[in-house]
Structure formats: structure tokens, C-alpha cells
Design a protein around this nucleic acid. Structure first.
Length: 869
RNA sequence: GCGGGCGUGGCGGAACGGUAGACGCGAGGGUCUCAAACACCCUUUCCGCAAGGAGUGUCGGUUCGAGUCCGACCGCCCGCACCA
């Protein structure tokens, strides 16, 4: 580029608003991003987790979609047939809350929000196929979901049962276990109550083993998410053991089962403990004085993390005694205990205090025997004692009759064998995972397509009668479920016998909606849930991108649902794991500001003369807090709409991809946004200034290219190779850095020698093409300014020329004893002995060598020389 | 408690076991301007005028060579959690 100021024309500034709108209109008009099934091309399905239509996009969406769009545009340029759809996760409670608070119908509220957010998203210039857009509250969508439900019901994958459920008293609905965080509702934050209700469940536990083992094959998923899913499923192998009750007056039961993973320690048992919710305990409540009070007291202690940590292990001796399975004459006390969970295992345990810390705490408190039965290697069995800490390590079995001398695992096998022979126990695999309770007593969800008949029981609504539409005339002026209150809606004849019957008024958990939308995108207008050809071609999702907060719930449910759809014939076997690769992006954070005891938004502060900030309203000094996740309560939010209006979409996108690795949190700063905007201006100005002096677009390489031009060409091709590699590896911040480097190199120009214009054009074109997936509008504008009539979104990705990736001369650092002392310059391909000689001849090295002969010289070709003295 | 991850300049962060700090922010200096804005150029890990030295949480190990690998510890973050 000509450096002298005189030849640089005075030009206007790049105007993002006008330019961005222009290119978006052109992409739309030419339907560049509409995906067509085309078996002759390799397909690539990029999906970002679809948004909830809250009404406004937030900066986290911008980051998520900037990444997804980068991947989509890159793959398109690489010749893939890209599917990149967008939709709305549109059912859910906020719409009903809006109805209650503002008297607006949930549908109206939702669709207006969708319209607003669609408008905002469109200004981002994403390469989305909007022709496939749908919302999960569209009857066309939930009708198909009802079809899936009835098929799953027929396949035994959903069922109804009466169960203790997590009841959110604020939202007035049931929550799945997964939606209870620290004993509180995930949405309302209210302490969850326990209630017994008849509920619909998905039989996800039937697939627990498969869902667990298949995690090994999810190589494109973050290890963190895989681990979280493994832990959530929580497989443990152990056995159930039957304990017989000694004769008593209290119960007619003959005994109970416990679950254990430490049956090797059975001889160390000194008590049994039952959950306060165990049927046996409940049966005793009226008969054993004080038991009911004890149970009530335990229930009143919250299930929050803090409460659990502080709650001491408490028990209540029921007076019952059980016989030890191997030593019937030995009687163990049976306690009701607050630390035994009814939901896990058998709701009952045997306590071996010597080898379980909880049992030990309990035994010490209630004066129960502590008998060591596992002796660590090297300790003497006669003197080995348990103090304040249980021993949970390996060792030899002692004090255990026929088990003495065995290892822990040998003892387990022996106990299992003998108990099985006695009919008192069997090996069992236990999971932490429970069946997915997905009934919700809400209006704004997918109606469960079932009719309850006195005679026939729950009958699925036949496919021909679907959909079961949500009634529109509902009221939100009373608590509870509007569907249940509706005067007529729930009355329907039984599909089986025709008798008057009652519609199910529960709706599905909204996680059902998001469990298969990715499959629906492949054929959104299909009159059945899926189209075999479309799912066959487009599935799986090649790259899924979203927040790590969905690492368990959404992703586990989707994995289950995909298998259910395979079983019911709506997905091929190959789509059982629907997401080939998953990327979880970090959050967007911002500093917090506080003055006069109130949180202030970034717009409410101004820089203070002496540094720091003051409140615009009051002039008070602002206390700057750490950068944390943007939240309305802390007011540390920036509105993407404002950012885009001010700087343009490309700036917001570029900044979201810069600096921080995509999986890590990124801090939004005004300085960073301005720097991004400045750089984009600079890119455009470089193209604009240089364009008139360049050889025409498409000119062949000149016969002679001088050294300066060649140097720039090397930079260009190194950038092409580097950006390609970084984009493939999700190193978007590194890719951005390489584009800066190339811009810096191009800014220095290619001199005036032969081939300078060619090299500069090549560099500028590379800048446009490499940055196109990140800042598509600006890139198109540069491309056009450089004289191209084609559309960059339809242009292929640049290829690096291998010849130009090879350095002309290599600078090799020379170390002496591992410390860098000098450097030598050699031609590529110089032999090791020649390099060694050059290194030893180097002045600095010679100084350290001081005439001595080195013990060893290590030459790593192309890398380094190390002289060892 | 269990599981996973991470500790690098003033800041965000780069670095196939091979020149630590790419790139950006911030800061300092300069050019242009009547002045400013914009833009451009230079400097910027620390100590030192310099030569030089030190340096990737701490301690040790492996290696010709360690931010990177191994062990122990310290600190921070995330997930799960009375799971038998």
C-alpha cells in the first residue's frame, strides 16, 4: 500500500448501519442460506441451542450465535451443504406469569416476543435458514410431539404412577429432580415441598446403562459434560440384602431389603437404618411413642445444601430388631434415621461404622459397637482400631468368620454367592438417575394427549384425533391449572368405549419440547414428526453449541428422546446420539457499579476527572465491583440492540470472538468494543484506500515477484493456514489474532517492487475471506470494494500455497545449557552438522564456550540448537 | 466429602516438551492539526544507565531443554452431594 499521505485519498468512514442492511437484503433476496437436501454434497448441520422468547436478545445470545454462524459460514465456504436453522423454545412459565401480571394471553405475549427477537436476531446478519423457523408452541409442532408421546406410551416408554413429587409452591407445579437445585425450584427459587400426586413419567432409567455406556463414544463432547452426565446417572454396583425381623408386636412385616456396595463388611454391621419415609417406619408412627414427632422434625429441616451439611446424623430406635443374615442369633437394632434417602436404593441401609464415616458418626453418637472387619495392609489385625475416622481403603478381611483373609473384592463375591444361596440377597446395579417426571400442572405447554376413562383407564388420543389443541379461552385469575378450570375442555368421550371421560389436564415439561426440535428442523413442515429422507440426510447435528448450564438436563433428555424416537421408528439407529460434537461457550461478564448503595448500569456512570467513575445522576463516586455474569439485578448488562445500533453487528460479533477462548467467560468492556470497531474501520479503510491502485480482480500472478511482495505473500498464506487451523479447533480468539497480524503486515504494504500490487490484493482479499465468517457484512463490502462482483457468502475458503508456508530463512535460537544465548540464521534444509558448526561459531555462544569443547550439541532441525557444556 | 478444570505482564490472553508473553486492551512518548477528533509511528514482564540478571502459584522430580510431563502442597472456579 502506498505509504505517503499524499496518495491516500481522504475518505469517509465505513457506515455499518447502511452497509449491513444492504448485504442482509441481498443475502435474503438470493436465499443464500436456505438449505436444500442434496445427496451429492456433504452436509453439515450446525445448531445453536434455540432461545426462549423472553422478548429481547441478550449478549449471551450474541456470543452463542456469533460462534455458530462462524462455524456455519466456514463450513459453507469449505463446500458443505449447511443446515443452520433457528426456532423458539416457546412454551413455559414466564408467558403465564405475564398473563397473570398483565392480563395478556400467553400466546399473544409469546408470539410478540418472538417477532421482536426475530427482528433483533436478523440485524446480526446470521447465515440462518429462516424458512425452517418454528416455535414449539406452534400447533403444527406440538401436534407432532403428541404423536411421539402416544407412540412412546405404546412402547412403554411413558407411564403414569403415583409418586412423591417435588412441588414448587410458588409456581404451583411439579418439578423434575433435575429442576430442584439445593432444595429449591430452579425457576422460582422457592423451597420445594414433597407431595404425593399421580404423574406421568418417562422411563429414562430403563436406558440408564445405555445412556451411560454411550457417553464413551461421545468424543466430540467436552470431557466436563461427559463426566457430569456420568455422575448424574450415578451407576453403582452392589447388592440388596434381606434382613429378617425378630419376632415383635409392632409390625406384620417379616423384614426389609437394604442396598449396599460394601457387602464385604457385612460382619461389621452393628445396626440398620431406615428412611423416615420408609413404609415400615410410616406403619410404626402410631405405635412407637415419639417416632412420628421425630419424623416430622426431620422433615422440617430443609434439604438445602447448608441444612444438610449442618444437620447431624440423627436416629430413632424403633425397638425393632433384625437378625444378621449369616448369624441369625445376632440381633441388630433398627433405627429410623434422617440421613437415609427413600429415593435411593432400598431406602434402608445396614450400618458398618468401622468402614463408613456416616455410619461411624452415627454409631459414636448412639453408642453402637464399632468392629473393624477390613484390616489395612501392614496393620496387625489384633491391634487395628478405628478412631474418629472410618477406614474405607483396601485390606484383608478380619473378624468375619469364613471371609477372614480374603480381599475386599473376594469377600464381596463370597458374600454375594452365599446370600444368593440362602435366598437372602442378590447382586444389583443401582442408579442415582430416576425416571423423568414430566407432568406439569400448567396451561402453556404441550397437552398430554390422553383421555381418562372410568372403564378403560388412561387411553391415548388416536393419531387421527390429534392434535389436542390448547383452548384459547382460559383465565389466569385463580391459582392452579387453567386447563383444569376450563368449563368444557376436559370433557371428551373415551376413544376406546365412547363413554364420557376426562381429558388429561397436565401438560408436558417444556424440556420435552427441546428434546427433539433438532430433528424437526430437518423437515419442519412434515405432516408426521419426521421425514425419513430428511433425517437420514441431515442428522446428526454435526456441531451443537450452547451454554454449559444445559450439560445435564437438556442434553440427557435429548439423548433419551432420540432413543425413544428410534424405538418408535421416527429416527434411524444412527441418530441415537443426536449430537456428534458439542461445544459449551462461556458466559459474558461485566464489571458491576455501585454508588449511593444502589447498583448502576454502565450507562448510568461517567468517567471521573481523577480516574474512576461517578454516578451521572448524583455525582457520587462509583465503587467498581468484579466482572461477573450479566444479570438484571446487578444491572451490569449491555443491550445488544444498543451495541448494534452504535457500532454495527460486525463489531459486536468480532468482539465476542476476540480475546477470550470461546469456552471461557469473556468480559464485555467498552474499550474492547471500541477497539473492535476501530479495527473494522481500519480493515475497510485499507481496502478502500488501496483498491484504486491495485491490479484488477482476478489478475494472474505476475511473472516477477520481488522479495518484499513475496514476504507479504508469505504472511498472507501463513494467515490462511493458521486461521483455518484455529477455526477448526474452535480457537476463535487465536484466529482473530492472526487476522490482526495479517492486517498489520498488509498495513506495512508490499513496497513498490515487482508484484507489490498483486501481493497487496492477495493480502486484502485474504483479510476479507478469512474474516467473512466473523464479520460477514464488512467482508462483503471489502470484497466488493476490491472489485469483485461475486458474493463472498458464496465464495470458497482460501487455500494456502504450501510453497509459501516454507520459510526462506530460519532463525534458530541457540541455547547454552538450556538458556538462550544467541541465534543463527540458516537456509531451510541445512544439515545438522552445518547448523552445529554455525552455532558454535556464533559470537555469543563462543563467549560462553570459552575455547572448550561442548559435551554435546543437540540440533532440532527447524527448532533449536542446545549446546551442553 | 466426591468428581472435573484452572493458576503466565497492569488486564484479557498466546506459546507440537524447543526463542515465554503472539494478538488485543490499558499506559507512556511522538507525528499530523490553530486546536481537537480520527489516523499513523515508537516504547511497554520485572530489576538495571548498561553489560547482565530474574521470571509462568509453591516445593521437588524426569529431560540436553519444562509454562507444558510426573509427585506433593497452596489457591481459585465449576458440577454433584447425607447416594449406602
Amino acid at each position: 500500500m502506498p505509504n505517503d499521505a499524499a496518495s491516500a485519498p481522504v475518505t469517509g468512514r465505513y457506515d455499518p448501519q447502511a452497509v449491513e442492511a444492504k448485504w442482509r437484503a441481498l443475502w435474503d433476496e438470493r436465499r443464500v442460506f436456505e438449505a436444500k437436501l442434496d445427496p451429492s454434497k456433504p452436509k453439515y448441520y450446525v445448531l445453536e441451542m434455540f432461545p426462549y422468547p423472553s422478548g429481547r436478545i441478550h449478549i449471551g445470545h450474541v456470543r452463542n450465535y456469533a460462534m455458530g454462524d462462524l462455524v456455519a459460514r466456514y463450513r459453507r465456504a469449505r463446500g458443505c451443504n449447511v443446515l443452520h436453522p433457528m426456532g423458539w423454545d416457546a412454551f413455559g412459565l414466564p408467558a403465564e406469569n405475564a398473563a397473570v401480571e398483565r392480563g395478556v394471553h400467553p400466546a399473544k405475549w409469546t408470539y410478540e416476543n418472538i417477532a421482536a427477537m426475530r427482528g433483533q436476531l436478523k440485524t446480526m446478519g446470521l447465515s440462518l435458514d429462516w424458512s425452517r423457523e418454528f416455535a414449539t408452541c406452534d400447533v403444527e409442532y406440538y401436534a407432532q410431539q403428541q404423536r411421539l408421546f402416544t407412540d412412546m406410551m405404546a412402547a412403554g416408554l411413558v407411564y403414569q404412577k403415583s409418586a412423591m413429587v417435588n412441588w414448587d409452591p410458588v409456581d404451583g407445579t411439579v418439578l423434575a429432580n433435575e429442576q430442584v437445585i439445593d432444595g429449591k425450584g430452579w425457576r422460582s427459587g422457592a423451597p420445594v415441598e414433597r407431595r404425593e400426586l399421580k404423574q406421568w413419567f418417562c422411563r429414562i432409567t430403563a436406558m440408564a446403562d445405555e445412556l451411560l455406556s454411550a457417553i464413551d463414544g461421545l468424543e466430540g463432547w467436552p470431557e466436563k459434560v461427559r463426566t457430569m452426565q456420568r455422575n448424574w446417572i450415578g451407576r453403582s454396583t452392589g447388592m440388596t440384602i434381606r434382613f429378617d425381623l425378630a419376632p415383635n408386636e409392632l409390625t406384620a412385616e417379616s423384614g426389609f431389603d437394604v442396598f449396599t456396595t460394601r457387602h464385604d463388611t457385612l460382619f461389621g454391621a452393628s445396626f440398620c437404618a431406615l428412611s423416615i419415609d420408609h413404609p415400615l417406619v410410616k406403619g410404626l408412627e402410631g405405635k412407637v411413642a415419639g417416632l412420628a414427632e421425630f419424623a416430622a422434625e426431620c422433615r422440617s429441616v430443609g434439604t438445602s445444601e447448608a441444612a444438610i451439611e449442618q444437620a447431624e446424623k440423627r436416629g430413632f430406635d424403633t425397638g425393632l430388631r433384625v437378625r444378621h443374615p449369616f448369624e441369625p442369633e445376632r440381633l441388630l437394632p433398627v433405627h429410623a434415621a434422617n440421613f437415609v434417602l427413600m429415593e435411593y436404593g432400598a431406602g434402608a441401609i445396614f450400618g458398618c461404622p468401622a468402614h463408613d464415616q456416616r455410619d461411624l458418626d452415627f454409631a459414636r453418637k448412639y453408642g453402637l459397637p464399632v468392629l473393624p472387619v477390613v484390616c489395612p495392609e501392614g496393620a496387625a489385625p489384633e491391634t487395628f482400631e478405628i478412631g474418629a475416622e472410618a477406614y474405607t481403603g483396601p485390606g484383608r478381611i478380619v473378624n468375619s468368620a469364613f471371609l477372614d483373609g480374603l480381599s475386599v473384592s473376594e469377600a464381596k463375591a463370597e458374600v454375594a454367592k452365599r446370600l444368593a444361596a440362602l435366598g437372602k440377597g442378590e447382586e444389583r446395579v443401582n442408579y442415582r438417575l430416576r425416571d423423568w417426571g414430566f407432568s406439569r400442572q400448567r396451561y402453556w405447554g404441550c397437552p398430554i394427549p390422553v383421555i381418562h376413562c372410568e372403564a378403560c383407564g388412561p387411553v391415548p388420543v388416536p393419531a387421527a384425533d390429534l392434535p389436542v389443541r390448547l383452548p384459547e379461552d382460559v383465565t389466569f385469575d385463580a391459582p392452579g391449572n387453567p386447563l383444569d378450570r376450563h368449563p368444557t375442555w376436559k370433557h371428551a368421550p373415551c376413544p376406546a368405549c365412547g363413554a364420557p371421560a376426562r381429558r388429561e389436564t397436565d401438560t408436558m415439561d417444556t424440556f420435552a419440547d427441546s428434546s427433539w426440535y433438532f430433528a424437526r428442523f430437518t423437515a419442519p413442515d412434515c405432516p408426521e414428526p419426521t421425514d425419513a429422507a430428511a433425517v437420514g440426510y441431515w442428522m446428526n447435528v454435526d456441531q451443537y453449541i450452547g451454554g454449559v448450564e444445559h450439560a445435564i438436563l437438556h442434553l440427557l433428555y435429548s439423548r433419551f428422546w432420540a432413543r425413544a424416537m428410534k424405538i418408535t421408528g421416527w429416527l434411524p439407529e444412527s441418530a441415537s446420539e443426536p449430537f456428534n460434537a458439542l461445544f459449551t461457550q462461556g458466559m459474558v461478564c461485566h464489571e458491576t457499579y455501585r454508588a449511593d448503595g444502589k447498583w448502576l448500569s454502565p450507562e448510568e456512570i461517567a468517567p471521573a476527572p481523577g480516574g474512576g467513575y461517578v454516578s451521572k445522576a448524583t455525582g457520587s463516586a462509583v465503587e467498581v465491583g468484579p466482572s461477573i455474569k450479566m444479570s438484571k439485578s446487578k444491572k451490569n448488562v449491555v443491550d445488544p440492540e444498543d451495541i448494534i445500533a452504535r457500532y454495527g453487528a460486525d463489531t459486536a460479533r468480532w468482539f465476542m470472538l476476540s480475546d477470550s477462548p470461546p469456552e471461557r467467560d469473556v468480559e464485555w468492556t467498552t474499550a474492547g468494543a471500541e477497539a473492535a470497531a476501530r479495527f473494522l474501520q481500519r480493515l475497510w479503510r485499507m481496502a478502500d484506500n488501496a483498491a484504486p491502485g491495485l491490479p484488477p480482480a482476478g489478475s494472474p500472478a505476475p511473472a516477477e515477484i520481488g522479495p518484499e511482495a513475496t514476504a507479504l505473500r508469505r504472511d498472507t498464506h501463513r494467515a490462511i493456514a493458521g486461521v483455518t487451523q484455529d477455526v477448526e479447533a474452535f480457537g476463535f480468539n487465536r484466529a482473530v489474532a492472526r487476522i490482526y497480524e495479517l492486517a498489520n503486515a498488509a498495513g506495512k504494504g508490499a513496497g513498490e517492487g515487482p508484484g507489490a500490487g498483486f501481493a497487496l490484493r492477495e493480502a486484502l482479499e485474504a483479510l476479507a475471506r478469512l474474516s467473512a465468517p466473523m464479520v460477514p457484512h464488512l467482508a462483503e463490502e471489502m470484497w466488493a470494494r476490491l472489485g469483485h462482483e461475486t458474493i463472498l457468502a458464496e465464495t470458497s475458503w482460501p487455500e494456502a500455497e504450501p510453497e509459501l508456508l516454507k520459510a526462506e530463512e530460519i532463525v534458530l535460537p541457540v541455547q547454552v545449557n538450556g538458556k538462550r544465548r544467541g541465534e543463527i540464521r540458516v537456509a531451510p534444509g541445512t544439515g545438522a552438522s552445518e547448523i552445529e558448526a554455525a552455532a558454535l561459531a556464533d559470537d555469543a555462544v563462543a563467549r560462553y564456550l570459552d575455547g572448550a569443547t561442548p559435551r554435546k550439541v543437540i540440533v532440532v532441525p527447524g527448532r533449536i540448537v542446545n549446546v551442553v557444556l
